[in-house]
């Protein structure tokens, strides 16, 4: 698997550290309540198909990127910097 870092270009998967589902970017408000926080921390759509997850280019430029990827085929369709999302 190769991931397209927006800064460095396409690089080997070994350079990246997997940081989990991109749902982590959608942090609830402090006072959102227990149910919202439980959902955020634990529950996942866990799709068999297209997913968005976070990868840290640990052995590269250090960027955190959001990768759009197919969990069934491992095909990678895109990536952008985490900051670019907002």
């Amino acid at each position: 698997m190769r991931l397209p870092c927006p800064i460095c270009g396409e690089r080997d998967r070994r350079e990246f550290y997997y940081q989990g589902d991109a749902v982590a970017l959608d942090r609830p408000a402090r006072d959102a309540g227990g149910a919202a926080w439980d959902d955020y921390l634990h529950n996942r759509d866990n799709p068999a198909g297209e997913t968005r997850d976070l990868w840290h280019h640990a052995a590269g430029c250090g960027a955190w990127i959001v990768v759009t990827r197919d969990t069934v085929t491992h095909a990678v369709s895109g990536a952008k910097l985490v900051g670019a999302k907002r």
Partner: peptide
């Protein structure tokens, strides 16, 4: 069944 689980595959 309308559930969202604390599971990742």
């Amino acid at each position: 069944a309308g559930m969202r689980l604390p599971i990742e595959s």
